[in-house]
Amino acid sequence: MTRETLRILYFYSGIAVDSTSTVLQTPEQVKIIMTDAIRVYPPKPRKVYFYGTCLIDLFYPDAGLAGVQLLEREGIEVVFPQNQTCCGQPAYTSGYHDEARAVAASQLGLFPDDWPIVVPSGSCGGMMRKHYPDLFRGTPQADSANAVAGRVWELTDFLLNVCHIKLDDLGEPTTVALHTSCSARREMGVADVGPRLLDQLKNVTRVEQARPEECCGFGGTFAVRHPEISGAMVTDKVESMITAGAPEFVTTDCGCLMNIAGCAEKAERPLTGQHILSFLWQRVSTPAPGNDDGAQS
């Protein structure tokens, strides 16, 4: 189940039908340019570890809970290690790697069994999967960091491609826009997952805003270090969704959610948002009224 590092080496050629391809094991020396590894999805496991992330923990626990419920609906037992705190990403992207490593190190021991680790965030998932190996390279924890990294899955990706989830839409007709976070899109490579999940919902019309792949301007500390630039970016994102005709949006990451929904609210624009997991859970369940507090921003 560990991530296989496979590389496809094509012979140079312009057009797909013309190419010959060979699958090779990556030689250690050329790893430096082999940035994309092909992921091999495991069969559906009996159990998973759930890594909730600090933003969800504090601000959007409903999204975490929805993720747990969706997994359980698939017959998977969800283990929530109570000692989880934060993946270390805020310090890491700010350059404080000693601090990030200390926090990350405290998390490495939370997943003793060989179950997948699912994360309801592309950004924290990306930190654990992509950056833990670098962060711990040459340290005594390198092996356990690599092992953890290889077991990390972004939750929507896991639901779609490991659980092969089938979503029966029980909700009223509605229209949404989707913002796939940059880390989900580019670090975790799951840009197609959100649309495929939403498109299973028969009463949901998904509209696409202009430049769907453009960053919403969150970027962690970027939003406070460069407030004007970040502000311009998020304002554009809000407007693009409204222009597309979406009264609400869903997103794969709470950072984006906080940013986009917060901007719409502050500017009093007609757009609300929630985490895609909250949305999916609402569509397939019949929640008791008032059970979804905190969902709307």
Partner: peptide, 8 residues
């Protein structure tokens, strides 16, 4: 190893 060879 990525020698280039054109196939057209």
């Amino acid at each position: 190893s990525l020698t280039t060879s054109m196939v057209r």
